[in-house]
Design a binder for these strands. Structure first.
Lengths: 190, 190, 190, 190
DNA sequence: AGCTAAACGAGACGGTACGTCCTGTCTTCGT
DNA sequence: ACGAAGACAGGACGTACCGTCTCGTTTAGCT
């Protein structure tokens, strides 16, 4: 859809504050009414544009162990956050979600919750498999993983590199492996 | 300052989207120019109003051990986040920081970084004392703590209760208990 | 157009200094942008409102002689200037024309010059007919007629009565009738 | 006074619309309050600046005959109107007089009426001397002279040259030459 | 092939807030 | 004590978008 492409491109050029429905319509060569007919706000357009333009797919395939599952999930997730345009849009949508309550609910249920659900599958599998550490609680793990990711996007703007993946994976899985080899692994990891 | 009080009250009544410089001026009984003379945007007003109205003090006093220090810091921090008005303003400021690059830089340096610095003091003391676990890395700890907090504020809107404090404390400090030799290796890694 | 009516009425109530685009918009029940879309300033609105609301028609029909033509033209013109609302607007527009160069050019070409042209027709006809006095020059006649009118509007604020019409008519036409009956006419005239 | 000089210079640089009390204060190196202490508005400042900066003197000395007196008066007056800065300020003041009723009264009584009075002296002398034409009436003569002058300043913006002086002088005095008996009747008429 | 009707581009509209400018008053501070 | 400096409440400016609302004009799909 030309409108989604226009929104996706424009937000990269003028930022979220500079993005207007009028601007999207002009770029897309359509009337404003056509946009309002299908989306209630520019944030909704952007949310759909993100889904169309960006491959947001993150696997939660079984890698045999909880540790490997988590490492793979984090790697996939954090890899996505290296596409600057995508990251910017995610930041803008999270911002809008704070300001516009109606959009916030949509964003949480249609986007954020889906991410949590994907990781939840990994945790459920680990519990079934029996290698889920007793601590932290599953909901805390979800908060830590996505919290750390979002915090880097929103607050520190640091790149989310492989070292963080390893560090997080180790932190979340160490209690399951209270053995001496931890210290040995450490050298390589950093 | 009447302007800060007005902004603080108004944002609670009409939300951030409904907050206008004109509205603040009317409530404060001043002209718009007086606001623009001192702050470049409503977000800047709110940031200062937060500092004036809300007691954002979080201690990082020495409680004798890394575990107790972390528990106390998290308890203080999360307690703050039970003041709904304060939480809302924090959410709005974080949102604005995504949209307005200039404000974003101020918010990160004048607010977010100060919070990190406070926790960093606790970590530094633990390293000196010798009870800092080898993992995760100090910067990762900061990301996890504040990431989890902000994620709950922005994304899940769950209350930040004592159980989460305990769970996080345990996760961040558990590696220190099992075996003392891990700590010995840590010096290189950080 | 509701905007023109609103402007015409408002200027009578609050004067030109008190007239604002915002006020016109409120009275007309429209947005400010709608006014700015069609007129560059409140003066332009008023100029058009004048044309719509006031019947500015002045005849220059042939009355058989230069003297009668001039008397008729002056009578028509001065009669107009007894509508106070119209006079006020004319004064305000002439004032604005001094202050705003761009409006000044419009006012001169679209209003003042048209008045001159109408009288010029009378003079041309007299020249063809052969009863135009040799003096004063045509352009001086125009200056005298409109100068006197405008001076009364702007400076003395005296009513422009029939006596002035007669006096001016006589002054401008006397050279064509260098006869004794002038003295006889004088008595009636004052 | 530095304020008057500043106002006189500034109005030539930025026009009347661009002239502000603040600007005058800055240029004059004084505070705004000092200006408001002595003059109620920028127009009042300008009116006084005009009197100080421009030599507005017009003679009404006795040249022996009504015709010569009128010619001299017109010549003096019109000569003044070749100083562009002075003309501009006169135009602006006349404009302000239309818009600001309070200033209008001052301008009429303190400036316009004084000009009329000066010419009235010439007319009174002519009546005494006996060479005042019966027509037009004295007040009409005043209207014609100043009306024509102001009309050229405000409306046509034509230069006021010597030819106009001659044309006007002739028009206003011609009736006096043809026949002396006209003057005899005049006494009643005025 | 012609007809109907939905969706479209275009853009004017009533409205809100913006950030700037200037007003005329009031306060501070240095000489 | 005076006056420059400038903060202040107030209010209009002209602009930018908002979301709504006609307008004709395509563009189908259905007769």
């Amino acid at each position: 859809m030309a409108i989604l492409v226009a929104a996706f491109e424009l937000v990269g050029e003028v930022g979220y504050a500079g993005l207007t429905v009028e601007g999207i319509a002009n770029r897309a060569g359509c009337g404003k009414q056509t946009i309002y007919r299908w989306w209630p706000s520019k944030a909704h357009v952007l949310l759909e544009a993100l889904a169309v333009k960006a491959d947001l797919y993150v696997t939660n395939a079984d890698h045999g162990s909880y540790t490997d599952d988590v490492r793979a999930f984090l790697g996939d997730t954090f890899r996505l956050s290296r596409q600057q345009r995508v990251v910017d849009i995610l930041r803008f949508l999270m911002a809008e979600a704070q300001i516009n309550e109606e959009f916030g609910e949509l964003f949480r249920s249609a986007f954020l919750q889906r991410r949590r659900d994907a990781l939840q599958v990994v945790l459920d599998r680990a519990r079934t498999r029996g290698d889920l550490p007793p601590r932290p609680a599953a909901s805390t793990i979800l908060d830590i993983v996505f919290g750390t990711l979002w915090y880097r996007l929103l607050a520190t703007r640091q790149p989310t590199g492989d070292d963080l993946v390893e560090d997080l994976t180790a932190t979340l899985t160490q209690a399951a492996q209270p053995r001496a080899d931890i210290a040995i692994d450490m050298g390589d990891q950093q």
